[in-house]
Computed example of a mutant assay.
Amino acid sequence: MPPKKASWIPDQHGAWAMLTVPFLVGTFLSPEPGRQHALLLAAWLLGYAAVFHAQQWLRLRRVAARRPEVARRHVRPALVLGAATALAGIPLAVLQPWLLLAGAAAAPCVAVNTWFAWLGWERALVNGLVAVVPACGMLLVAARLGGGGLPWAPAAACLLYFAGTVPYVKTMIRERNSFTYYRGSVAYHAAATALAALLSPWLAIPFAGYLARAAVLPGRGLRAPVIGAVELVCSAALSVSLLLIY
């Protein structure tokens, strides 16, 4: 039976903010946001979905070898979404050949994530942190595409925030009983707040809020929708802060 349409959309809900926030911030920080940004965003999101299904196919071929149909349901989405990515991305690569270099720079991170997927270690802390790097790097790509420079400070702020979401979310769900994870998450957020203040004193305000949520919310038994809603607010606060400051 072919997969339902809904199954084509990756169920990694936390990834969508990480994929879109840096991109949109870079777009609106650029002097000339335009149609090419819309095309690049389409290629970016479609590419993520295609890679997700390809990685799931690899993972399930290994861990569910006795049920090949489980892996096969990811083949069609991977191929169709990959083709859609090419349709959106090739015209951009012709118009802006430097985007190929940006893609090459992201390739090692994608390779690492694919390796972890094949091993079945997708939830590993290192895997999550590696995935943050190209996502935040899209801020630089989007800004450059709009005729701007390379705004390293906003990209670094995004990296500090989204890297912190990886251990924080674990303290809320999979590692909610681990004091080691909790202590590490709080320590990271304290350090991130100090580093963000070096980028801009104004950034200390939202990052102090991120530190507070990392210290206070774990252990309170919050349901997944509430955790997700909090992260949406935090992501929105980061976006607004960066656009106002820079």
Rank of each mutant, 00 (worst) to 15 (best):
A229R: 07
V226M: 12
G219R: 08
R220L: 14
S200N: 14
P225S: 09
P218G: 12
L211I: 09
F207R: 01
L222D: 03
P206M: 10
P218I: 10
P218S: 13
A208D: 03
L211T: 08
F207N: 02
I205A: 12
G228S: 03
L203W: 13
A208N: 05
L222T: 01
F207D: 01
L203A: 04
R223C: 03
P218A: 10
Y210V: 00
R213D: 06
V226G: 01
A214R: 02
W202S: 01
P201I: 12
A194E: 03
L222M: 11
L195N: 05
V226Y: 13
L217R: 03
R213F: 11
F207A: 03
P206S: 07
A196T: 06
V226R: 05
A204V: 14
A196N: 13
V216L: 15
G221H: 06
I205Q: 01
A215W: 15
V216H: 11
L199A: 12
L195R: 00
A224Y: 14
A212W: 14
A196M: 11
S200E: 14
G219S: 09
S200G: 06
L203P: 05
V226P: 00
V226A: 14
V226D: 00
Y210R: 01
A194L: 15
I227Q: 03
A212K: 07
V216G: 02
L198E: 06
G209R: 04
R223P: 00
G221E: 06
P225F: 13
F207P: 01
R213L: 11
G219Y: 11
S200D: 14
A224S: 09
R220E: 11
I205E: 00
V226T: 14
A215I: 07
V216I: 15
A204G: 10
G219H: 07
R223A: 15
L211K: 05
W202N: 00
L203G: 05
V226N: 06
W202Y: 13
Y210I: 02
R223D: 15
A229M: 07
L203H: 08
A215V: 10
A229T: 06
A214K: 08
A208C: 12
W202V: 02
P201K: 06
G221A: 09
P201S: 14
G219D: 12
L222A: 04
A204K: 05
L217W: 05
L198M: 15
L222G: 00
L199R: 05
L199P: 03
I227C: 03
A197H: 06
F207G: 01
P225Q: 08
S200A: 15
P218V: 12
G219C: 11
A194Q: 09
I205N: 02
R213Q: 12
P225I: 14
P225V: 10
A204Q: 04
A204N: 03
P201R: 07
S200H: 15
I227D: 01
R223H: 08
A196R: 05
R223F: 04
A204S: 13
V226Q: 13
A224V: 15
A212S: 04
A229H: 04
A194P: 00
P201D: 13
F207I: 02
L222K: 02
A196W: 10
G219L: 07
W202A: 15
G209E: 03
A194I: 14
W202D: 00
R220M: 11
A214H: 07
A224Q: 14
V216Y: 15
R220A: 09
A229S: 09
L222Y: 05
G221K: 04
I227T: 03
A197C: 10
A197S: 12
V230S: 10
